[in-house]
Structure formats: C-alpha cells, structure tokens
Design a protein around this nucleic acid. Sequence first.
DNA 1: TTAGGGTTAG
Length: 569
Amino acid sequence: MARTPSSFTQLLRRPSSKILQNPKQPIRNIAHDNNEDKPLHSTDIVNQICATIRSKPRWENTLLSDFPNLSFLDSTLLNQVFTHQKNVLFSIRLLHWLRSQFGYSPDQSTCCLIFNSLVEHKAANAAKGFLELTKFVPDQAGIESYVRCLCESGMVEDALQVFDEMSKRGVCPLLETWNCVLQGCVKDGCTDVVWRLYGEMMELGVDVDVHTVGCLIQAFCLEKNVSKGYELFRQMLDDGFVPNKVCFDKLVFEFILDRKYSRVSALLHIMIAKGVNPDIYTYQQVIHALCLRRMQREGLRIFNDLKDRGYAPDRIMYTTMIHGLCKIKWLGEARKLWFEMIQKGIKPNIYTYNTLLYGYFKIGDVENALNLYKEMQDKGYSETLVAYNTMISGLCSHGRTTLAYQLFNQMSRNNVSKDVVTYNSMIRGFCNDGKLTEGLNLLRELVDHGLQPSSASYGPLIEKLYEMKRIDEVKTLWNEMQEKGVEPASVCINDDVVIGLSNEGYVTAGIYWLAYTVKNRFIPRQETFENLIGVLSQKDMLDVGQIALGHMFKIGYIPSFRLDAVSLT
DNA sequence: TTAGGGTTAG
C-alpha cells in the first residue's frame, strides 16, 4: 500500500475529458435571462410592457406616458406582466414603481408569483427584501424553498432564523431542507449549530440520509476530530452507503495535516473501489495540506505528476502551488508556474496576484512587489482588503513604513474597510520604526472602530514600551489586554518580556501567560519555565509555581535546578 | 455536469 505523499498519484488513471476542463460552470446571469415563453393569456400589451422594461434603462420615467390609456392596477394584467417578466430584479423594480406611483400593494397570488420566482432564481437578498416589503407569508413549501435558497446563497444566519421559527411552530421540514441548512452551517464553520440541529432531527425522529451523515463527517473534520469523522465514515461504508465526495476530500486533507499518510492511501483506494475517483479537487486539497505541513517538495512532485498523467491543473490548483512555493521562498519555481499558467491561457486572478505579491515581500524583493502591485492596479485588483494588507504588512517588514501608511490612509478614501490584520501590521511597522505614539493611536482607533484586538495588536507595543523602560504603560496595556480576554500568543508576546515584567513585580503577566500555556498545552522554552518558577518562588507564590512545574514535567522537561533550592517541594 | 478547492500579520 502506498504510504508516502508522493505515491498518492500512483492510482491515477488518465482523466476523462470532462475533468480536463475547468469544472466551474459560468454562473447563469438572471439579468439576461430573456426566454421568450408564451404568456399564459397573451396580450400584446403585456409583451410591450415587458419589452419596454427590458430595453429602456430609465423606463420608470416614461412608462406612464408610453402607455397612457392603461390601468396599471388591473391585477390580471399585472399578474401576466409578472409572469411574463422573467427577470426577477426587473419585477422588483416594477413593484417599487407601482408602489410609489399608485400605492400599489400586490395581492396574495401576485406575491406568491413574485416570491416563487425570486426563490427559484436564487435571488436570496431580493426575496428577503420582498418579504420585508410586502409582509407576505409564503406557504410551507415556499418557506422551505426560501430557507434552502438562503443557505445556498451563504445567508445561513437568515436561513436559521426562519428555520428555527418553523420548528417552533411544530412544523417538521423536509429532509432536503434539513440537509441544506446543515450544509450551510458546515460551510460557515458553525459546528455547534450542526450538532444542535442534528439533535433536533433525532428528537423528531427524522430519517437521515447520506447527505446528513456527510455533514456530520465534515463537522468532525472542522473540529479537527478527524478520527471520529473517519469512524462515522467507515460505519457508513459498512452499512453499504457511499459518502459524498466532499467527505473523502476533507478526510484526505485532515489526515495529511495529521501526517497519517497510510490513512490517505487507504482512503484513495476506497475512493477508487467505490467509483468515486480522486480528481483535481482531491489533489488540490492534498497539495494544500502538504504545503501547510511544509512539505512543498512533495506537493510539487504531485503537481508535476498530475500534469504528466494528463490532468490539467486549473487556476486554483496553480494558485495553491504558487502560494506553497512562495511560503518557503522558492520564488523561482513560483514564477515558473505563474508564467506556465499564463502560457496555458489561464489568467492569474486576484488570489494569484495576492499570492505572488506576498511571495515577493517574503524574499524582500520590494521592487518587484511594487511592480506587481502596479499591474494589479491596472487590472482593478488593488483596492481590496487582502491586497492592501499584503502591501502594508510587506512594506512594514522591509522598513517602508511611510509608504505603508500612505496606503493605510488610502483605504478609507477608497471605501475599503480595514480589519484587525491591517491595524496589526501597521502597528508593528510603527513600533519597528520607534514611532510608539502612532502605534498606540492606531490601537485606540482599532478598538474605537469596534474591532477585537488580538495579541498581535498589543505585542509590538508592549515589547517596545518595555524596551524603553516605560513599565507603567506596559502594565496598563497588559491589563487592558487581559480585560479584553486577549490571549498572550507566544508568536506575538515575547516570553522574555513576560518574565521580565514578573521579575519587576508585575507577576500578573507571568500568571496570565502560564494559564494560557497550560490551557493550550503549548511547549515554551525550558528556560522560560525555569525563569518563571524562579520568580514565583521568590514571590512566595508556591501554588502557582507548582502548576508551572507540573506542566513542565508533563512536557518532559527535567528542571536543571534543584527543587529544594526554589522551595517548591 | 450537485458542489466542493486557493490569497493577508505574528
């Protein structure tokens, strides 16, 4: 059985022609869906009204004069117009126009017609707005379609609200609807809701199916409880069911993250045996997971192997591989793939550009990064949150704080909202430049904007203030951090500063750090532990010292000092 | 022809 990542492609056969194509289908544009179905009770007038609405951009200004003798409140006529008018967004516009012109409010049958059409066309937002506007109450089937429509459009919170109301009224939804909501929750990463809903299903005695269990497997994967997910997966197979392909892919991904390569091989074998062939989605996940585990070399081998076997990597596959290579600073290989994809006719998109931009900064090639950013500006890719964040962080890492701050200020002018990453990057930049006041101001601004600060918001400021011996200010910041429940992640908060603060009498810092370390079972340096225990011992905080010592033993560190010397026994 | 996959700090 294959057990190493690079042998994962051994089972591959040449892909069928459909796999060679980009599997993404173009999204149907409802704004151009002009199927000329015959109206139910066809009249020329209906056709003319619809044609006018479709062809005149500002028909609202002329519709009355275009049809001077028409009674726009004739409900038979309106129903025909709404039926014939296939473009749901135009229907909504017409509805608003009729309201403002004549105070029109649609009757039950018209509401039903428009609402069903909106839901059918997956216009979730418009459907929501329509319900709010008209106070229309759809029938049971309508509500269920609406819930599914909301889920499929990613509006899971709205869907849950309607869904929960439905259960409160004692109505048991269709299995299809349950599954759709479960899937939506999985997509949103809300596993707690998945378990709650599944519990309700059990209580109501709903017969679940492959899709339901598929969602549970995915939920286990999301919670990093892959062994539980796999158990359920095996159980399904034993019962004679074949789980969704997504489950296979997610399990493969998680097993690679867990470095359980024999499990991955087993899964790939099962897939083929069950007629669920691994495809570029599967291998994209394989490469992504390998790169996350710093196994880019293996990932690249698989990537090339796939090409040799006739698979055509798509844009996402290229982006994933390029990103992996950028992360380990293999910019030469990354650029090779960048040009290769262009040569194959795949244009880099906003993700690919951001990735390469990150790569240039990673190796400190600011010049090429700036050139690429110019290209992004030309393509209209530059004014997004991630592009700005990549630029600001990259520029700050290489001493170009002033330019970074210019971009930072440009964001508000261009109506791009900043997030905690934007602020943290800029704070770090200012601190590196010794511009503490500016950094502190940004921390205030971050909080004022209602964003939740993280340890990376405080870390650089605390470190710099400590370096400058402004201990009182450090204490204030530390307290604020603790009050906001921000954990002192070791990548952001320097251990030596924590111990130093404890040593200077501010033991709170050490205790908070210790609680975080023990809770998350982190493995800090032995030296940090010993220093902390030393401080605690001097301060007669033996109980806390015991906790530190206990955790230290658990990790496997053997204290280099004599225990009786710190009077902890 | 179900959809599912990719980008930013420390």
